[in-house]
Computed example of a mutant assay.
Amino acid sequence: MMSQVNSGSGVAAGAASARAPLAYGATRPIVGIALLVLSGWALSTLDAAGKWAMGAGVSLLMLCWVRYVVHMLLVLGLVLPVRGVGVLRSVRPRAQFVRGSVMLLATLSFFTTLHLLPQAEATAINFLAPLIMLSLAPWLLKEPARVSRWVAAGVGFLGVLIIIRPDGGLDTLGTISGLITAFLFAGQFIATRRVAVDDPFTTLIWSGAVGSVCLTVALPFILPAALPFLSELGPWHWIVLISTGFWGAAGHLLQIQAYRNAPASMLAPFIYLQIISAATLGWLVWGQFPDAVTWVGIAIICGSGIVLGAWEWRDRGRALRVSKT
């Protein structure tokens, strides 16, 4: 999941990018880039594991419950001994709950998309989410309106249209689910801006807690239908299912560490390298590889995001130089 992103795309990336560079500084950019690339591979592995588990018959809600609960237990086990219980306290608990709820909906929608579409195409459509968020920022975040953001969003959507073209052979329901997921992730990114006052680890914990609690409350309704199938799962099925929580936690923790070592503007272009891990795993596991026309659409989406990031990085640098004179 993106991520950027995820799933795929990431849970804590927005919080980390909004705050961590200011809080921790940017001292090791190469390390930050390497960690972000590793995060992309971890989150793509999460996506592949979830897609495989659903293909084996695990229900969507049961998959998400395992993914959230295992993720939550791992994060708490790693963060609490270092940060203490104080890391659980949020300055804006209501905003954290809203963000966690939107993230849960995005997770459900994205796993549905992965079940119906090849992994590379599902991941590429998700890359539209940051562009949607930036284009809506003037109204939802009260940020200055910028034509460059609207142009980038329009170009990115053109890339999506190429991917989901009628002769592309993609499932219609999966395509619709992919577009809904992109808008949900955009909402998650916007909500992340509102909780940027919190520690990134606080946001990471709240993200997992909201999904875990909501799905655990629903467990009495989920479990009866799932039990007959779960009782027949072999050891390998259980390993893959439980690994979704491990890969999710690893991906998001790596993202936070990446943004503690390098500024968000420097890391932004490397987020799109996740398409390589998504395409590679899709090919290795299912033999699915995007055709040439689809790669054109993917390149347009990634290019629009990279160019926009470079443009805004240049503008910020220019503004800083002017402010110092």
Rank of each mutant, 00 (worst) to 15 (best):
L35N: 07
S17R: 12
D198H: 07
P138A: 02
K142N: 13
P269H: 14
P200N: 13
F157R: 02
M2F: 15
G248N: 06
L267T: 07
P21K: 13
A26S: 09
Q288P: 06
S212Y: 07
L233S: 11
R260E: 11
P118H: 07
R92G: 08
G309V: 12
L223T: 07
I190N: 05
L78A: 13
L117P: 06
K142C: 01
S59Q: 14
Q257K: 09
G8R: 10
G10V: 05
V307S: 00
A26K: 00
V147I: 08
V147T: 12
L43I: 07
A12C: 07
D47K: 04
L104A: 05
I239A: 08
S304N: 12
I222F: 05
S177C: 05
C214K: 03
V213K: 01
P93G: 05
L105N: 08
P228M: 12
L117S: 10
T294H: 07
V151G: 01
R193G: 11
L158Q: 03
P220S: 01
A310V: 08
V66D: 05
E232Q: 11
S148W: 04
Q188P: 02
G77M: 01
A42Y: 02
F185P: 00
Q188M: 15
W247K: 01
F111S: 02
H71G: 06
T113Q: 10
K142E: 08
L140F: 07
G25T: 13
N261L: 00
L43R: 01
F246A: 08
G14K: 01
P224L: 05
I205E: 03
I132M: 09
L104Y: 10
I222E: 01
G305Q: 05
I125R: 13
A15R: 02
